[in-house]
């Protein structure tokens, strides 16, 4: 995957109205290849809506998302949706839908499970796995599709610290292989550990895009400063 040509994402004037509320309000954003981006912002700022819009799940009322070249993408949700079949079949299903033939399908599914440390439970029904295992399976399913961009919406929000560490390890390893990571989180520690750059969202707009090591000590926007103060009151 590392050898694939990188793709740049341009979001221009994105406006999304959900239930009469402007979730995104003329948001502009450029995501360059090779970085790990964490989107931060207060509750209701529009982080999840942004990810879904970039991924194509939500059609913006105005504006557009363009890619510099054809780009494969996948998304992992806060609450993973597991199909009522085995862990292994959850992955082969996604591959079959995307036209991956046998025996390639089986090979890739097995590799994906091994990648997230679930090879031993391949035949277990996905629905009876633990929350952490389900999220790892969701990651494996997304990874098997060999995405250029992987969107993750609060992937560890409902997990315990052990499972969270495991998920972070997997995400970091995907990124190391060249998968472009774009994720949201409420966990600032996680953001520090995983982010190369931070995109800060306030009231449906991206108020800043800053390198991660700079952001936490010197946020550029006033809103981000207030947010960090609220989240890290000892500062």
């Amino acid at each position: 995957m590392a050898e694939r040509d990188p793709s740049t994402l341009h979001a221009r004037d994105l406006t999304v109205v959900l239930g009469g509320v402007r979730a995104l309000d003329g948001l502009d954003l450029t995501l360059e290849p090779g970085l790990r981006t964490v989107v931060l912002g207060a509750n209701g700022a529009g982080k999840s809506v942004l990810l879904r819009t970039l991924h194509g799940l939500i059609r913006p009322a105005r504006g557009e998302v363009t890619w510099s070249r054809p780009t494969r993408q996948a998304m992992v949700f806060q609450r993973p949706v597991m199909l009522r079949r085995s862990a292994f079949a959850n992955i082969t299903y996604a591959l079959a839908v995307n036209g991956v033939p046998e025996p390639e399908r089986t090979r890739r599914a097995a590799a994906a499970l091994a990648r997230v440390g679930l090879a031993a439970i391949a035949s277990r029904p996905a629905r009876v796995l633990s929350g952490g295992e389900q999220q790892r399976l969701a990651l494996a399913r997304a990874w098997a599709l060999e995405p250029d961009y992987l969107f993750l919406d609060e992937p560890t929000a409902s997990l315990d610290p052990g499972a969270t560490a495991e998920i972070e390890r997997v995400i970091a390893s995907f990124a190391a292989e060249g998968t472009r990571i774009v994720m949201t989180t409420h966990n600032l520690g996680q953001a520090r550990r995983l982010a190369d750059e931070i995109v800060f969202i306030h009231a449906g707009r991206a108020t800043e895009r800053t390198a991660a090591d700079l952001f936490f000590d010197h946020p550029a926007s006033r809103e981000a400063g207030l947010f960090l103060q609220g989240e890290l009151p000892w500062k």
Binding site: R52, H55, L57, V81, N98, R141, L145
Partner: peptide
């Protein structure tokens, strides 16, 4: 429950 996930997978 499934719409987002399946759409995301390209179903």
């Amino acid at each position: 429950d499934y719409e987002e996930q399946l759409t995301s997978l390209g179903v």
